[in-house]
Amino acid sequence: MEAAIRWAGLLRYKPMIISAITLPNCLPQTLDCPRWSECCLYMERIYDGILNTELSFGKNGITVNDPDLISSPDLTIRHVDLKRWMCTHYPEHRPGFLFSRSERMAHPFISMETGQALLMERLALQAALDGTRSQMQELQVRHQALLKQSTIQGAAKQSVISDRAETTYLNIIGGMVTLMLGQSPSGTPYSVFKTQESIVTALLAHYSGTMGITERTLNGKFANARKNVHSAVP
């Protein structure tokens, strides 16, 4: 009964279920708890395995396969025997009390828990990608504003920039480029760009002719920026 309760995921209802049972293999037809029909089905499967000598059993954790124990409340099933039997006869089931999380994740059948975990990871990656795109757009807007400001101030002031400001921009650019070329802990890329060259090509395709948007300038700035931000990381 303990195995059937855990198999159905009803461990918190165990006291109520146990108190409602008069005989070990005689369950009430209805009970005020969820998935009771599943619990009854799993109980029947376990007894079917025992009766057909597919599942070893015993008493107090010692395997004896004594038929007199089948109707006894002292009947026990070893963890390893139950796991082996379930793998053979019900391979699509991977209850948490028998199988580790890695075993459930590696199984070809995707459980609800696994599906939810994958969905949450996908949503997190999508949010990170959207954030990266937003930051890149903001950076492009700021870059355009700086270019316009430099044009208004004149050629004499275009090269005037403090060391602190230059470091800030290099850190921002280096962080963005590194993030765009990186991937999540699970191995999913944060963007469609695989190399620095692909980013440069895309910028040239969209902003060719804009001051500073040249292959040589971009490659130089990106290299310096990535080197700068990496050296700044503790």
Rank of each mutant, 00 (worst) to 15 (best):
S56V: 09
F57Y: 15
G58N: 14
G58K: 15
N60M: 11
G61P: 01
G61T: 05
G61C: 06
I62M: 14
V64T: 13
N65Y: 14
N65P: 14
D66W: 14
D66R: 15
D66Q: 15
P67Y: 11
P67Q: 11
P67N: 12
P67M: 11
I70D: 14
S71N: 13
S71T: 11
P73T: 09
P73W: 12
D74S: 14
L75I: 14
L75S: 11
T76L: 08
T76N: 09
T76W: 07
T76E: 10
I77M: 15
I77Y: 15
I77T: 15
R78L: 15
V80K: 12
L82F: 15
R84H: 12
R84D: 09
W85P: 10
M86P: 10
M86H: 05
M86A: 11
C87T: 03
C87A: 02
C87D: 05
C87L: 08
T88F: 06
H89K: 02
H89T: 00
E92L: 04
E92H: 05
H93Q: 03
R94H: 06
P95V: 06
G96Q: 04
G96L: 08
F97C: 04
F99R: 03
F99Q: 09
S100L: 04
R101G: 01
R101F: 06
S102C: 03
S102V: 06
E103W: 06
M105K: 04
A106Y: 03
A106L: 08
P108C: 11
I110W: 08
S111F: 07
S111R: 03
S111P: 04
M112A: 12
E113N: 06
A117Q: 02
A117C: 01
A117S: 02
L118D: 09
L118T: 02
L119D: 01
M120T: 07
E121C: 07
R122Q: 01
R122Y: 02
L123S: 03
A124E: 10
A124T: 06
L125R: 00
L125G: 01
A127Y: 08
A128V: 07
D130I: 00
G131H: 06
T132Q: 00
Q135C: 09
Q135A: 13
M136E: 00
Q137T: 05
E138I: 04
E138F: 07
E138T: 04
L139K: 09
Q140M: 05
Q140W: 10
Q140S: 02
V141P: 00
Q144L: 12
A145V: 03
A145W: 09
L146F: 11
Q149I: 03
S150A: 05
T151V: 02
I152F: 01
I152W: 05
Q153K: 07
Q153C: 05
K157C: 01
K157A: 07
S159R: 09
V160F: 12
V160T: 09
I161W: 01
I161Q: 08
R164P: 05
R164H: 13
E166W: 08
T167P: 00
T168P: 00
T168M: 07
N171M: 05
I172V: 08
I172D: 02
I172C: 03
I173R: 00
G174V: 01
G174C: 07
G175D: 10
M176V: 04
M176D: 02
M176K: 07
L179Q: 12
M180N: 12
M180Q: 14
M180W: 13
L181K: 10
L181V: 10
G182H: 14
G182W: 15
G182C: 11
P185V: 13
S186D: 15
S186T: 15
G187Q: 07
T188K: 14
